[in-house]
Design a protein around this nucleic acid. Structure first.
Lengths: 228, 228
DNA sequence: ACCCTTTTCTGAACACGTTCAAAAATCTCT
DNA sequence: AGAGATTTTTGAACGTGTTCAGAAAAGGGT
């Protein structure tokens, strides 16, 4: 169980769900700062201490929020991935949907990422605690790659989902700092970078670039091994 | 003045400096969490309120810390840049020095980055408030590029410092999450990526890659314009 | 039905970052 | 040197996230 104190009773499950739901509700409604633990407890009709019985910290609550938006994103992406086979189109759609899914929360996304960037936080995308969420997230890009007809070297194909996930994290980081109206810059960034990535994937089969490709992929795998 | 309330009197300057110094001292000694505003004020022999007269927030204090490590990094880099002309060697040295400069603070660097990642925070590397620091930081890479004999297209040469700064931010992000002993993984990352970047710069003159290069550079400039 | 264990829940407390009105010290100008 | 304006400094207060000892409720076995 990646979460905090699990509920061990039927009643417990109920209370836990109640707190979580009101938390998400308040979070969307009032943003991060205004959503105090006291407000959550109060609106849930629960004592402050009880909220902490089910959620180790305020960040825990946020993690649940993350997970929800991720599920929305996957739900929105899958239908598109069914009918689009071009890898460029697939990636473009998935990335655009990611941003549009996150759009309503742009205001306090900074705080989200802020806690996520702290490696000591269980919220960190690289932390073991969020491994499940990360796995699910990468999984989407596995589907994206597997279902495309794009021709590319096998070694690249194996690592591409992870690389695209990394890329997608970078785009989110950009988006968080993007204060342009309707986040125009982020959408522009996506259009450009997806085009560039598409070209790079095409070029990857070129023998001229083979050493470079090998080198880059070795970097990825070696760092992964060093991590474990 | 990017800082908080400036000191307007000689005495004020003194107190301001006193608070800042004890803050940095405690920060290095006890880490972020243990260094409370009360502790800083207390050790400085000043009231809590007075600390807030000179520093708008705890984060402000941290920004000063950032700046100090940056200056140390530049001081360590310049001598090397004098005697090394190969761009690969220059970049390798600068990046290694960056990490070794930061090394003592790895433990609480997460918190540093945590606040830095919040776009609403003046500490954010992309925020207008830290423009000066960012400018100085990019400046180091301008020196790095200008003093190298590497041949490359002019359009790339113009944007390379900024791109390298971006790259260096990415490495720092990786370093923060790197819990391997002595941060071996980060140093490995640097070796690999510097090699790759060096090869990419060499390849950039190749006509085959011209459209890709143009496209990538247009992305950079266009996003910059959209930002302003 | 009883007791004992486990779980749920409460309310008060703590330390923290931050704010603010007002006192004290300092500066400025005549 | 003195008066008025500005700056520095204080101390108390507020609301926050979080903790904890223990009360209340629920569950389980005989």
């Amino acid at each position: 169980m990646t979460a905090a104190t699990a509920a061990k009773t039927q009643k417990g499950e109920q209370t836990r769900a109640l707190i979580l739901n009101t938390a998400l509700e308040l979070l969307e409604q009032d943003g991060y700062e205004k959503t105090t633990m006291r407000a959550i407890a109060s609106k849930s009709g629960v004592s402050l201490g009880n909220a902490y019985h089910y959620f180790r910290s305020k960040e825990q609550l946020i993690q649940a929020f993350y997970h929800r938006t991720h599920e929305q994103h996957v739900a929105a992406s899958l239908p598109v991935l069914e009918r689009e086979s071009d890898i460029k189109g697939r990636l473009l759609a998935v990335m655009r949907l990611k941003i549009s899914t996150l759009e309503p929360y742009h205001e306090f996304a900074g705080v989200l990422f802020k806690t996520a960037a702290d490696p000591q936080s269980p919220l960190s995308p690289f932390a073991p605690d969020s491994q499940r969420v990360r796995g699910e997230s990468i999984n989407l890009f596995e589907i994206l790659v597997a279902g495309s007809k794009a021709r590319m070297p096998n070694d690249l194909r194996a690592e591409l989902p992870y690389l695209l996930w990394l890329y997608h994290m970078g785009v989110i980081l950009f988006w968080i700092h993007d204060s342009s109206p309707k986040q125009v810059r982020t959408y522009r960034l996506i259009e450009y970078t997806v085009d560039i990535l598409d070209r790079l994937i095409s070029l990857a089969s070129n023998p001229l670039l083979r050493p470079l490709r090998k080198r880059a992929l070795k970097l990825v795998t070696e760092l992964r091994d060093l991590g474990a």
